[in-house]
Write a protein that binds this DNA or RNA. Structure first.
Lengths: 280, 280
DNA sequence: ATATATAGTTCCATATTATGGATCTAAAAC
DNA sequence: GTTTTAGATCCATAATATGGAACTATATAT
Protein backbone atom coordinates (compact mmCIF):
# COMPACT_ATOMS: atom_id res chain seq x y z
CA UNK A 1 0.00 0.00 0.00
CA UNK A 2 1.41 3.32 -1.03
CA UNK A 3 0.35 6.20 1.09
CA UNK A 4 0.87 8.74 -1.66
CA UNK A 5 -1.85 7.16 -3.71
CA UNK A 6 -4.90 7.62 -1.54
CA UNK A 7 -7.53 8.06 -4.24
CA UNK A 8 -5.60 11.06 -5.57
CA UNK A 9 -8.80 12.96 -6.20
CA UNK A 10 -7.74 16.30 -4.79
CA UNK A 11 -4.29 16.22 -6.31
CA UNK A 12 -5.37 15.59 -9.83
CA UNK A 13 -8.05 18.20 -9.64
CA UNK A 14 -5.68 20.98 -8.71
CA UNK A 15 -4.91 21.40 -12.37
CA UNK A 16 -5.53 25.09 -12.48
CA UNK A 17 -6.50 26.22 -9.06
CA UNK A 18 -5.62 29.70 -8.16
CA UNK A 19 -6.48 30.64 -11.70
CA UNK A 20 -7.67 33.88 -10.22
CA UNK A 21 -4.97 34.96 -7.78
CA UNK A 22 -7.65 36.05 -5.29
CA UNK A 23 -7.75 39.83 -5.65
CA UNK A 24 -4.16 40.65 -4.87
CA UNK A 25 -4.73 40.05 -1.18
CA UNK A 26 -3.60 36.76 0.27
CA UNK A 27 -5.26 34.96 3.13
CA UNK A 28 -8.76 36.03 2.27
CA UNK A 29 -9.88 33.89 -0.62
CA UNK A 30 -13.26 33.04 0.78
CA UNK A 31 -14.05 36.67 1.53
CA UNK A 32 -13.16 37.55 -2.03
CA UNK A 33 -15.50 34.82 -3.10
CA UNK A 34 -18.28 35.93 -0.80
CA UNK A 35 -18.07 39.46 -2.20
CA UNK A 36 -18.26 37.97 -5.68
CA UNK A 37 -21.39 36.06 -4.74
CA UNK A 38 -23.06 39.20 -3.42
CA UNK A 39 -22.32 41.00 -6.66
CA UNK A 40 -23.48 38.02 -8.68
CA UNK A 41 -26.83 38.05 -6.90
CA UNK A 42 -27.45 41.59 -8.13
CA UNK A 43 -26.93 40.63 -11.77
CA UNK A 44 -30.40 39.19 -11.93
CA UNK A 45 -32.08 42.23 -10.50
CA UNK A 46 -35.34 41.85 -8.70
CA UNK A 47 -35.85 38.22 -9.73
CA UNK A 48 -33.17 36.92 -7.43
CA UNK A 49 -30.50 34.42 -8.39
CA UNK A 50 -30.40 30.66 -8.35
CA UNK A 51 -27.53 28.68 -6.92
CA UNK A 52 -26.33 27.53 -10.34
CA UNK A 53 -26.51 31.04 -11.76
CA UNK A 54 -24.27 32.30 -9.01
CA UNK A 55 -21.90 29.36 -9.32
CA UNK A 56 -21.58 29.82 -13.08
CA UNK A 57 -21.19 33.57 -12.74
CA UNK A 58 -18.40 33.18 -10.21
CA UNK A 59 -16.72 30.13 -11.72
CA UNK A 60 -17.06 28.14 -8.50
CA UNK A 61 -18.33 24.66 -7.74
CA UNK A 62 -21.88 24.35 -6.49
CA UNK A 63 -21.02 22.96 -3.04
CA UNK A 64 -18.67 25.85 -2.43
CA UNK A 65 -21.27 28.39 -3.42
CA UNK A 66 -23.89 26.62 -1.39
CA UNK A 67 -21.79 26.69 1.74
CA UNK A 68 -20.88 30.35 1.40
CA UNK A 69 -24.46 31.33 0.68
CA UNK A 70 -25.63 29.41 3.72
CA UNK A 71 -23.22 31.41 5.81
CA UNK A 72 -24.32 34.69 4.24
CA UNK A 73 -27.93 33.75 4.94
CA UNK A 74 -27.04 33.08 8.58
CA UNK A 75 -25.44 36.53 8.74
CA UNK A 76 -28.49 38.22 7.26
CA UNK A 77 -26.61 39.39 4.19
CA UNK A 78 -28.61 37.10 1.93
CA UNK A 79 -32.20 35.87 1.97
CA UNK A 80 -33.51 32.76 0.31
CA UNK A 81 -37.08 32.46 -0.87
CA UNK A 82 -38.25 29.16 0.59
CA UNK A 83 -40.53 28.48 -2.34
CA UNK A 84 -38.36 29.30 -5.35
CA UNK A 85 -35.05 28.80 -3.51
CA UNK A 86 -33.80 31.93 -5.14
CA UNK A 87 -31.33 34.13 -3.35
CA UNK A 88 -31.72 37.84 -2.67
CA UNK A 89 -29.69 40.34 -0.72
CA UNK A 90 -30.65 40.47 2.95
CA UNK A 91 -31.51 43.06 5.55
CA UNK A 92 -27.96 43.43 6.79
CA UNK A 93 -26.84 44.57 3.36
CA UNK A 94 -29.52 47.21 3.36
CA UNK A 95 -28.60 48.37 6.86
CA UNK A 96 -24.93 48.59 5.99
CA UNK A 97 -25.85 50.49 2.86
CA UNK A 98 -27.50 53.15 4.99
CA UNK A 99 -24.28 53.62 6.90
CA UNK A 100 -22.31 53.93 3.66
CA UNK A 101 -24.81 56.27 2.03
CA UNK A 102 -23.52 59.63 3.30
CA UNK A 103 -20.34 59.16 1.30
CA UNK A 104 -21.64 57.57 -1.85
CA UNK A 105 -25.20 58.69 -2.33
CA UNK A 106 -25.33 60.94 -5.36
CA UNK A 107 -29.13 61.08 -5.38
CA UNK A 108 -29.42 64.63 -4.15
CA UNK A 109 -27.04 65.79 -6.84
CA UNK A 110 -28.72 64.01 -9.75
CA UNK A 111 -32.35 63.77 -8.73
CA UNK A 112 -33.52 67.18 -9.99
CA UNK A 113 -32.02 66.52 -13.41
CA UNK A 114 -33.56 63.06 -13.58
CA UNK A 115 -36.98 64.37 -12.59
CA UNK A 116 -36.84 67.18 -15.15
CA UNK A 117 -35.90 64.74 -17.89
CA UNK A 118 -38.63 62.30 -16.90
CA UNK A 119 -41.19 65.07 -16.91
CA UNK A 120 -40.13 66.66 -20.18
CA UNK A 121 -39.81 63.40 -22.08
CA UNK A 122 -42.46 61.24 -20.43
CA UNK A 123 -40.07 58.30 -20.62
CA UNK A 124 -38.00 56.42 -18.04
CA UNK A 125 -34.75 58.02 -16.92
CA UNK A 126 -31.85 56.04 -15.45
CA UNK A 127 -28.77 56.98 -13.48
CA UNK A 128 -25.88 54.54 -13.72
CA UNK A 129 -22.41 54.52 -12.24
CA UNK A 130 -19.29 52.59 -12.88
CA UNK A 131 -18.16 50.08 -10.29
CA UNK A 132 -15.11 48.16 -11.37
CA UNK A 133 -16.03 46.40 -14.58
CA UNK A 134 -19.72 46.78 -13.83
CA UNK A 135 -22.33 49.40 -14.44
CA UNK A 136 -24.72 49.81 -11.51
CA UNK A 137 -28.17 51.34 -11.81
CA UNK A 138 -28.30 53.92 -9.02
CA UNK A 139 -31.65 55.57 -9.61
CA UNK A 140 -34.64 55.54 -11.89
CA UNK A 141 -37.47 58.00 -12.53
CA UNK A 142 -40.61 57.28 -14.49
CA UNK A 143 -42.20 59.70 -16.89
CA UNK A 144 -45.90 60.09 -17.56
CA UNK A 145 -46.20 58.02 -20.73
CA UNK A 146 -48.39 55.05 -19.82
CA UNK A 147 -46.29 52.36 -21.47
CA UNK A 148 -43.30 52.29 -19.15
CA UNK A 149 -40.05 50.56 -20.02
CA UNK A 150 -38.80 49.48 -16.61
CA UNK A 151 -36.07 47.27 -18.00
CA UNK A 152 -33.57 47.84 -15.22
CA UNK A 153 -34.10 47.86 -11.46
CA UNK A 154 -32.22 50.14 -9.12
CA UNK A 155 -29.23 48.25 -7.75
CA UNK A 156 -28.89 45.91 -10.71
CA UNK A 157 -25.35 45.39 -11.99
CA UNK A 158 -24.47 44.71 -15.60
CA UNK A 159 -21.16 44.42 -17.39
CA UNK A 160 -19.85 47.73 -18.72
CA UNK A 161 -20.84 47.91 -22.36
CA UNK A 162 -24.33 46.54 -21.89
CA UNK A 163 -27.20 49.00 -22.18
CA UNK A 164 -27.15 52.69 -23.00
CA UNK A 165 -25.59 53.57 -19.64
CA UNK A 166 -22.93 50.92 -20.01
CA UNK A 167 -22.09 52.20 -23.48
CA UNK A 168 -22.08 55.81 -22.36
CA UNK A 169 -19.58 55.05 -19.61
CA UNK A 170 -17.17 53.60 -22.18
CA UNK A 171 -17.66 55.87 -25.19
CA UNK A 172 -15.27 58.60 -24.02
CA UNK A 173 -12.45 56.29 -23.00
CA UNK A 174 -9.41 55.55 -25.15
CA UNK A 175 -9.90 52.75 -27.68
CA UNK A 176 -7.26 50.66 -25.99
CA UNK A 177 -8.99 50.85 -22.62
CA UNK A 178 -12.38 50.14 -24.15
CA UNK A 179 -11.03 47.03 -25.82
CA UNK A 180 -9.53 45.78 -22.58
CA UNK A 181 -12.71 46.31 -20.60
CA UNK A 182 -14.94 44.75 -23.23
CA UNK A 183 -12.57 41.81 -23.58
CA UNK A 184 -12.62 41.27 -19.81
CA UNK A 185 -16.40 41.38 -19.86
CA UNK A 186 -16.82 39.37 -23.06
CA UNK A 187 -18.02 36.15 -21.47
CA UNK A 188 -20.56 37.98 -19.35
CA UNK A 189 -21.76 40.09 -22.27
CA UNK A 190 -22.54 36.87 -24.10
CA UNK A 191 -25.14 36.17 -21.44
CA UNK A 192 -27.39 38.94 -22.77
CA UNK A 193 -29.35 37.39 -25.61
CA UNK A 194 -27.56 37.69 -28.91
CA UNK A 195 -25.25 40.43 -27.67
CA UNK A 196 -21.54 39.73 -28.13
CA UNK A 197 -18.35 41.62 -27.41
CA UNK A 198 -17.71 42.66 -31.06
CA UNK A 199 -21.26 43.99 -31.26
CA UNK A 200 -20.63 46.07 -28.18
CA UNK A 201 -17.49 47.51 -29.75
CA UNK A 202 -19.52 48.44 -32.81
CA UNK A 203 -22.23 50.05 -30.70
CA UNK A 204 -19.59 52.09 -28.92
CA UNK A 205 -18.02 53.19 -32.19
CA UNK A 206 -21.37 54.26 -33.57
CA UNK A 207 -22.23 56.07 -30.35
CA UNK A 208 -18.97 57.98 -30.54
CA UNK A 209 -19.85 59.05 -34.06
CA UNK A 210 -23.39 60.06 -33.06
CA UNK A 211 -22.22 61.93 -29.98
CA UNK A 212 -24.51 59.99 -27.68
CA UNK A 213 -24.86 56.38 -26.59
CA UNK A 214 -27.54 54.57 -28.55
CA UNK A 215 -28.66 51.11 -27.59
CA UNK A 216 -31.10 49.73 -30.14
CA UNK A 217 -30.07 46.12 -29.75
CA UNK A 218 -33.25 45.71 -27.73
CA UNK A 219 -31.92 43.65 -24.86
CA UNK A 220 -35.52 43.86 -23.85
CA UNK A 221 -37.34 43.42 -27.15
CA UNK A 222 -39.22 46.57 -28.09
CA UNK A 223 -37.13 48.94 -25.97
CA UNK A 224 -34.52 51.43 -27.11
CA UNK A 225 -32.41 53.72 -24.95
CA UNK A 226 -30.12 56.72 -25.25
CA UNK A 227 -27.46 57.84 -22.82
CA UNK A 228 -24.69 60.28 -22.08
CA UNK A 229 -21.76 60.09 -19.67
CA UNK A 230 -21.17 62.63 -16.91
CA UNK A 231 -17.53 63.58 -16.60
CA UNK A 232 -15.68 64.58 -13.48
CA UNK A 233 -13.39 67.63 -13.60
CA UNK A 234 -10.49 65.42 -14.68
CA UNK A 235 -12.37 64.28 -17.74
CA UNK A 236 -13.12 60.80 -16.51
CA UNK A 237 -16.67 59.48 -16.90
CA UNK A 238 -18.08 58.44 -13.54
CA UNK A 239 -21.81 58.34 -14.17
CA UNK A 240 -24.25 58.09 -17.01
CA UNK A 241 -27.79 59.29 -17.55
CA UNK A 242 -30.03 57.33 -19.88
CA UNK A 243 -33.54 57.53 -21.25
CA UNK A 244 -35.46 54.43 -22.26
CA UNK A 245 -38.70 54.03 -24.18
CA UNK A 246 -40.50 51.71 -26.54
CA UNK A 247 -39.07 51.62 -30.05
CA UNK A 248 -42.03 53.41 -31.60
CA UNK A 249 -41.24 56.52 -29.54
CA UNK A 250 -37.62 56.54 -30.67
CA UNK A 251 -37.61 57.97 -34.18
CA UNK A 252 -34.37 59.38 -35.52
CA UNK A 253 -35.53 62.95 -34.83
CA UNK A 254 -36.69 62.20 -31.34
CA UNK A 255 -33.35 60.54 -30.54
CA UNK A 256 -31.67 63.80 -31.46
CA UNK A 257 -34.08 65.76 -29.28
CA UNK A 258 -33.50 63.46 -26.34
CA UNK A 259 -29.74 63.64 -26.82
CA UNK A 260 -29.94 67.43 -26.81
CA UNK A 261 -31.98 67.42 -23.61
CA UNK A 262 -29.53 65.03 -22.01
CA UNK A 263 -26.60 67.10 -23.11
CA UNK A 264 -27.90 70.27 -21.52
CA UNK A 265 -28.62 68.52 -18.22
CA UNK A 266 -25.24 66.85 -18.22
CA UNK A 267 -23.47 70.12 -18.92
CA UNK A 268 -25.27 71.72 -16.00
CA UNK A 269 -24.31 68.83 -13.74
CA UNK A 270 -20.68 68.98 -14.77
CA UNK A 271 -20.62 72.65 -13.87
CA UNK A 272 -21.95 71.88 -10.40
CA UNK A 273 -19.66 68.96 -9.64
CA UNK A 274 -16.46 70.25 -8.17
CA UNK A 275 -13.37 68.15 -7.83
CA UNK A 276 -14.05 67.06 -4.29
CA UNK A 277 -17.50 65.73 -4.98
CA UNK A 278 -16.74 63.53 -7.93
CA UNK A 279 -16.01 59.90 -7.46
CA UNK A 280 -12.68 58.67 -8.72
CA UNK B 1 5.94 2.35 8.77
CA UNK B 2 2.52 3.36 9.87
CA UNK B 3 0.82 5.71 7.50
CA UNK B 4 -1.24 7.36 10.24
CA UNK B 5 1.95 8.83 11.73
CA UNK B 6 3.13 11.09 8.96
CA UNK B 7 4.41 14.08 10.93
CA UNK B 8 1.32 13.86 13.12
CA UNK B 9 1.18 17.61 13.62
CA UNK B 10 -2.27 18.30 12.24
CA UNK B 11 -3.92 15.25 13.71
CA UNK B 12 -2.76 15.81 17.26
CA UNK B 13 -3.76 19.41 17.21
CA UNK B 14 -7.39 18.76 16.36
CA UNK B 15 -8.15 18.39 20.06
CA UNK B 16 -10.35 21.44 20.35
CA UNK B 17 -11.60 22.19 16.90
CA UNK B 18 -14.37 24.64 16.51
CA UNK B 19 -13.36 26.58 19.59
CA UNK B 20 -15.26 29.43 17.98
CA UNK B 21 -18.58 27.90 16.90
CA UNK B 22 -18.68 30.29 13.95
CA UNK B 23 -22.36 31.09 13.45
CA UNK B 24 -23.76 27.61 13.16
CA UNK B 25 -22.41 27.23 9.65
CA UNK B 26 -19.19 25.32 9.21
CA UNK B 27 -16.62 26.04 6.55
CA UNK B 28 -17.12 29.75 6.48
CA UNK B 29 -15.43 31.18 9.53
CA UNK B 30 -13.70 34.00 7.74
CA UNK B 31 -16.90 35.12 6.06
CA UNK B 32 -18.59 35.20 9.44
CA UNK B 33 -15.71 37.31 10.63
CA UNK B 34 -15.83 39.63 7.66
CA UNK B 35 -19.52 40.25 8.27
CA UNK B 36 -18.69 41.01 11.89
CA UNK B 37 -16.07 43.52 10.83
CA UNK B 38 -18.54 45.30 8.57
CA UNK B 39 -21.00 45.56 11.43
CA UNK B 40 -18.27 46.70 13.78
CA UNK B 41 -17.34 49.54 11.46
CA UNK B 42 -20.87 50.92 11.77
CA UNK B 43 -20.70 51.07 15.57
CA UNK B 44 -18.70 54.26 15.40
CA UNK B 45 -21.07 55.99 13.05
CA UNK B 46 -19.77 58.69 10.80
CA UNK B 47 -16.35 58.89 12.46
CA UNK B 48 -15.18 55.60 11.04
CA UNK B 49 -13.43 52.88 13.00
CA UNK B 50 -9.80 52.23 13.81
CA UNK B 51 -8.17 48.85 13.39
CA UNK B 52 -7.92 48.30 17.14
CA UNK B 53 -11.54 49.27 17.69
CA UNK B 54 -12.67 46.70 15.20
CA UNK B 55 -10.33 44.05 16.60
CA UNK B 56 -11.53 44.65 20.15
CA UNK B 57 -15.16 44.73 19.07
CA UNK B 58 -14.86 41.42 17.25
CA UNK B 59 -12.53 39.70 19.69
CA UNK B 60 -9.95 39.05 16.98
CA UNK B 61 -6.23 39.59 16.78
CA UNK B 62 -5.00 42.66 14.95
CA UNK B 63 -3.20 40.83 12.13
CA UNK B 64 -6.35 38.87 11.36
CA UNK B 65 -8.46 41.99 11.26
CA UNK B 66 -5.88 43.81 9.22
CA UNK B 67 -5.78 41.09 6.61
CA UNK B 68 -9.54 40.83 6.29
CA UNK B 69 -9.93 44.60 6.10
CA UNK B 70 -7.29 44.75 3.40
CA UNK B 71 -9.31 42.26 1.41
CA UNK B 72 -12.54 44.17 1.99
CA UNK B 73 -10.82 47.36 0.84
CA UNK B 74 -9.68 45.61 -2.33
CA UNK B 75 -13.28 44.54 -2.93
CA UNK B 76 -14.60 48.06 -2.45
CA UNK B 77 -16.66 47.09 0.59
CA UNK B 78 -14.48 49.17 2.88
CA UNK B 79 -12.61 52.44 2.45
CA UNK B 80 -9.65 53.61 4.47
CA UNK B 81 -8.92 57.26 5.00
CA UNK B 82 -5.25 57.55 4.08
CA UNK B 83 -4.69 60.30 6.62
CA UNK B 84 -6.43 59.02 9.72
CA UNK B 85 -6.25 55.34 8.70
CA UNK B 86 -9.80 54.96 9.82
CA UNK B 87 -12.05 52.51 8.08
CA UNK B 88 -15.44 53.29 6.56
CA UNK B 89 -17.88 51.29 4.52
CA UNK B 90 -17.17 51.43 0.78
CA UNK B 91 -19.04 52.07 -2.41
CA UNK B 92 -19.83 48.43 -3.04
CA UNK B 93 -21.77 48.25 0.21
CA UNK B 94 -23.84 51.21 -0.84
CA UNK B 95 -24.48 49.74 -4.27
CA UNK B 96 -25.53 46.41 -2.83
CA UNK B 97 -27.76 48.26 -0.40
CA UNK B 98 -29.63 49.77 -3.33
CA UNK B 99 -30.34 46.31 -4.67
CA UNK B 100 -31.59 45.16 -1.26
CA UNK B 101 -33.68 48.27 -0.65
CA UNK B 102 -36.93 47.24 -2.35
CA UNK B 103 -37.43 44.52 0.23
CA UNK B 104 -36.23 46.21 3.36
CA UNK B 105 -36.74 49.92 2.95
CA UNK B 106 -39.44 51.00 5.36
CA UNK B 107 -38.88 54.69 4.65
CA UNK B 108 -42.06 55.18 2.68
CA UNK B 109 -44.08 53.62 5.44
CA UNK B 110 -42.59 55.61 8.30
CA UNK B 111 -41.53 58.88 6.72
CA UNK B 112 -44.85 60.74 7.00
CA UNK B 113 -45.09 59.93 10.70
CA UNK B 114 -41.49 60.97 11.32
CA UNK B 115 -41.98 64.25 9.47
CA UNK B 116 -45.18 65.05 11.37
CA UNK B 117 -43.47 64.38 14.68
CA UNK B 118 -40.45 66.47 13.75
CA UNK B 119 -42.67 69.34 12.70
CA UNK B 120 -44.98 69.24 15.70
CA UNK B 121 -42.22 68.87 18.27
CA UNK B 122 -39.37 70.79 16.68
CA UNK B 123 -36.99 68.09 17.90
CA UNK B 124 -35.07 65.28 16.22
CA UNK B 125 -37.01 62.13 15.37
CA UNK B 126 -35.35 58.75 14.92
CA UNK B 127 -36.46 55.48 13.38
CA UNK B 128 -34.66 52.39 14.65
CA UNK B 129 -35.00 48.73 13.85
CA UNK B 130 -33.83 45.58 15.46
CA UNK B 131 -31.12 43.59 13.71
CA UNK B 132 -30.01 40.58 15.70
CA UNK B 133 -28.72 41.93 18.99
CA UNK B 134 -28.30 45.38 17.53
CA UNK B 135 -30.47 48.40 17.09
CA UNK B 136 -29.91 50.15 13.77
CA UNK B 137 -30.81 53.76 13.10
CA UNK B 138 -32.78 53.64 9.84
CA UNK B 139 -33.88 57.24 9.44
CA UNK B 140 -33.71 60.62 11.10
CA UNK B 141 -35.70 63.82 10.67
CA UNK B 142 -34.79 67.18 12.14
CA UNK B 143 -37.27 69.57 13.66
CA UNK B 144 -37.10 73.33 13.55
CA UNK B 145 -35.63 74.02 16.98
CA UNK B 146 -32.21 75.53 16.35
CA UNK B 147 -30.29 73.45 18.87
CA UNK B 148 -30.33 70.08 17.20
CA UNK B 149 -29.39 66.89 18.99
CA UNK B 150 -27.96 64.79 16.17
CA UNK B 151 -26.57 62.16 18.47
CA UNK B 152 -27.06 59.23 16.12
CA UNK B 153 -26.31 58.93 12.41
CA UNK B 154 -28.43 56.95 10.02
CA UNK B 155 -26.90 53.49 9.65
CA UNK B 156 -25.24 53.47 13.05
CA UNK B 157 -25.60 50.25 15.04
CA UNK B 158 -25.76 50.07 18.81
CA UNK B 159 -26.38 47.21 21.19
CA UNK B 160 -30.06 46.68 21.99
CA UNK B 161 -30.72 48.44 25.28
CA UNK B 162 -28.67 51.52 24.49
CA UNK B 163 -30.60 54.71 23.74
CA UNK B 164 -34.33 55.33 23.75
CA UNK B 165 -34.84 53.24 20.62
CA UNK B 166 -32.82 50.38 22.00
CA UNK B 167 -34.84 50.48 25.23
CA UNK B 168 -38.14 50.72 23.37
CA UNK B 169 -37.35 47.61 21.35
CA UNK B 170 -36.84 45.64 24.56
CA UNK B 171 -39.49 47.05 26.88
CA UNK B 172 -42.35 44.89 25.61
CA UNK B 173 -40.43 41.62 25.63
CA UNK B 174 -40.67 39.04 28.40
CA UNK B 175 -38.31 39.66 31.33
CA UNK B 176 -36.46 36.47 30.65
CA UNK B 177 -35.74 37.44 27.07
CA UNK B 178 -34.73 40.94 28.05
CA UNK B 179 -32.27 39.57 30.56
CA UNK B 180 -30.74 37.25 27.99
CA UNK B 181 -30.32 39.97 25.40
CA UNK B 182 -28.89 42.47 27.85
CA UNK B 183 -26.54 39.85 29.24
CA UNK B 184 -25.33 39.01 25.75
CA UNK B 185 -24.76 42.70 25.07
CA UNK B 186 -23.32 43.50 28.49
CA UNK B 187 -19.71 43.88 27.46
CA UNK B 188 -20.62 46.13 24.56
CA UNK B 189 -22.98 48.22 26.68
CA UNK B 190 -20.07 48.90 28.99
CA UNK B 191 -18.43 50.75 26.10
CA UNK B 192 -20.96 53.60 26.39
CA UNK B 193 -19.62 55.89 29.10
CA UNK B 194 -20.83 54.92 32.53
CA UNK B 195 -23.65 52.79 31.18
CA UNK B 196 -23.73 49.21 32.45
CA UNK B 197 -26.00 46.24 31.91
CA UNK B 198 -27.78 46.54 35.31
CA UNK B 199 -28.46 50.20 34.59
CA UNK B 200 -30.03 49.22 31.29
CA UNK B 201 -32.26 46.71 33.06
CA UNK B 202 -33.35 49.47 35.45
CA UNK B 203 -34.04 51.85 32.57
CA UNK B 204 -36.18 49.20 30.90
CA UNK B 205 -38.11 48.54 34.10
CA UNK B 206 -38.80 52.24 34.60
CA UNK B 207 -39.80 52.61 30.96
CA UNK B 208 -42.25 49.76 31.31
CA UNK B 209 -43.78 51.53 34.32
CA UNK B 210 -43.95 54.86 32.50
CA UNK B 211 -45.39 53.34 29.34
CA UNK B 212 -42.68 54.80 27.13
CA UNK B 213 -38.94 54.40 26.80
CA UNK B 214 -37.05 57.14 28.58
CA UNK B 215 -33.33 57.55 28.19
CA UNK B 216 -32.03 60.28 30.50
CA UNK B 217 -28.66 58.70 31.08
CA UNK B 218 -27.36 61.26 28.64
CA UNK B 219 -25.07 59.09 26.59
CA UNK B 220 -24.42 62.38 24.91
CA UNK B 221 -24.28 64.80 27.85
CA UNK B 222 -27.15 67.26 27.73
CA UNK B 223 -29.41 65.09 25.57
CA UNK B 224 -32.52 63.16 26.61
CA UNK B 225 -34.71 60.99 24.44
CA UNK B 226 -38.08 59.25 24.49
CA UNK B 227 -39.21 56.31 22.41
CA UNK B 228 -41.93 53.81 21.66
CA UNK B 229 -41.84 50.44 19.94
CA UNK B 230 -43.90 49.63 16.86
CA UNK B 231 -45.39 46.16 17.01
CA UNK B 232 -46.14 43.83 14.15
CA UNK B 233 -49.51 42.07 14.04
CA UNK B 234 -48.09 39.20 16.06
CA UNK B 235 -47.22 41.51 18.92
CA UNK B 236 -43.48 41.51 18.32
CA UNK B 237 -41.65 44.85 18.33
CA UNK B 238 -39.80 45.35 15.08
CA UNK B 239 -39.14 49.07 15.02
CA UNK B 240 -38.97 52.01 17.36
CA UNK B 241 -39.58 55.71 16.97
CA UNK B 242 -37.72 58.09 19.21
CA UNK B 243 -37.52 61.82 19.86
CA UNK B 244 -34.36 63.45 21.14
CA UNK B 245 -33.76 66.95 22.49
CA UNK B 246 -31.61 68.88 24.91
CA UNK B 247 -32.40 68.22 28.56
CA UNK B 248 -33.92 71.64 29.15
CA UNK B 249 -36.68 70.88 26.66
CA UNK B 250 -37.53 67.63 28.37
CA UNK B 251 -39.54 68.56 31.45
CA UNK B 252 -41.76 65.90 33.02
CA UNK B 253 -44.89 67.35 31.40
CA UNK B 254 -43.31 67.64 27.98
CA UNK B 255 -42.15 64.04 28.18
CA UNK B 256 -45.77 63.04 28.67
CA UNK B 257 -46.85 65.17 25.71
CA UNK B 258 -44.18 63.67 23.49
CA UNK B 259 -45.13 60.17 24.59
CA UNK B 260 -48.75 60.88 23.75
CA UNK B 261 -47.82 62.17 20.31
CA UNK B 262 -45.65 59.13 19.72
CA UNK B 263 -48.37 56.83 20.87
CA UNK B 264 -50.93 58.18 18.44
CA UNK B 265 -48.51 57.93 15.51
CA UNK B 266 -47.49 54.43 16.48
CA UNK B 267 -51.10 53.32 16.78
CA UNK B 268 -51.80 54.66 13.31
CA UNK B 269 -48.76 52.86 11.92
CA UNK B 270 -49.74 49.60 13.53
CA UNK B 271 -53.15 49.85 11.91
CA UNK B 272 -51.54 50.30 8.50
CA UNK B 273 -49.03 47.50 8.80
CA UNK B 274 -50.63 44.29 7.72
CA UNK B 275 -49.11 40.92 8.34
CA UNK B 276 -47.32 40.69 5.02
CA UNK B 277 -45.54 44.01 5.36
CA UNK B 278 -44.05 43.62 8.79
CA UNK B 279 -40.60 42.30 9.23
CA UNK B 280 -40.23 39.09 11.20
C1' DA C 1 -47.15 8.28 -15.97
C1' DT C 2 -42.37 7.32 -16.45
C1' DA C 3 -37.88 8.57 -17.78
C1' DT C 4 -34.37 11.91 -18.02
C1' DA C 5 -32.06 15.99 -16.97
C1' DT C 6 -31.13 19.56 -14.07
C1' DA C 7 -30.81 21.81 -9.61
C1' DG C 8 -30.05 21.63 -4.70
C1' DT C 9 -27.94 19.53 -0.75
C1' DT C 10 -24.97 16.66 2.31
C1' DC C 11 -20.70 14.29 3.41
C1' DC C 12 -15.91 14.09 4.41
C1' DA C 13 -10.71 13.22 3.49
C1' DT C 14 -7.29 16.38 3.10
C1' DA C 15 -4.93 20.10 0.39
C1' DT C 16 -5.10 24.76 0.88
C1' DT C 17 -6.15 28.54 3.33
C1' DA C 18 -6.24 31.55 7.12
C1' DT C 19 -4.42 32.16 11.67
C1' DG C 20 -2.00 34.81 15.24
C1' DG C 21 2.55 35.12 17.84
C1' DA C 22 6.56 37.52 17.07
C1' DT C 23 8.50 41.36 15.15
C1' DC C 24 9.06 45.71 12.97
C1' DT C 25 7.65 50.47 11.72
C1' DA C 26 5.00 54.62 12.29
C1' DA C 27 2.58 57.77 14.82
C1' DA C 28 0.89 59.79 19.05
C1' DA C 29 1.60 60.92 23.89
C1' DC C 30 4.49 62.32 27.43
C1' DG D 1 14.25 63.59 23.57
C1' DT D 2 11.63 58.94 25.42
C1' DT D 3 7.72 56.03 25.97
C1' DT D 4 3.46 54.19 24.54
C1' DT D 5 0.18 52.82 21.46
C1' DA D 6 -1.39 51.72 16.86
C1' DG D 7 -0.61 49.80 12.30
C1' DA D 8 1.59 46.62 9.21
C1' DT D 9 4.34 42.46 7.80
C1' DC D 10 6.15 37.73 8.12
C1' DC D 11 5.62 32.88 8.14
C1' DA D 12 5.35 28.08 10.35
C1' DT D 13 1.57 25.35 10.81
C1' DA D 14 -3.09 24.65 12.92
C1' DA D 15 -7.31 24.63 11.31
C1' DT D 16 -10.33 25.94 7.78
C1' DA D 17 -12.53 25.60 3.46
C1' DT D 18 -12.54 22.91 -0.66
C1' DG D 19 -14.84 20.13 -4.21
C1' DG D 20 -15.55 15.18 -5.89
C1' DA D 21 -18.80 11.82 -5.08
C1' DA D 22 -23.21 10.62 -3.95
C1' DC D 23 -27.83 11.51 -2.96
C1' DT D 24 -32.43 13.91 -3.04
C1' DA D 25 -35.68 17.03 -4.97
C1' DT D 26 -37.51 19.39 -8.69
C1' DA D 27 -38.24 20.48 -13.56
C1' DT D 28 -38.62 18.89 -18.27
C1' DA D 29 -39.18 15.63 -21.92
C1' DT D 30 -41.16 11.47 -23.70
Amino acid sequence: MDLKQARGSRRTASKKRNKHPANGVTGAQSIHRAAGLLRAITFRGRDGARLVDVARQCGLERPTVHRILKCLVAEGMVTQDPGTRRYFLGHLVFELGLAAAPQFNMQQLFEPALLRLAERTGDTVYLSMRSGLDCVCMDRKEGAFPIKTLTLDVGTRRPLGVGAGGIALLMTLADEEVREIVAANAWRIAGYGSLRAPVVLDLIKRSQALGFALNDRQLTPGAISVGLPVMNPYGAPYAAIGIGAIASRMSAERLQQLAALLKSEVRALERVVVAGKARA
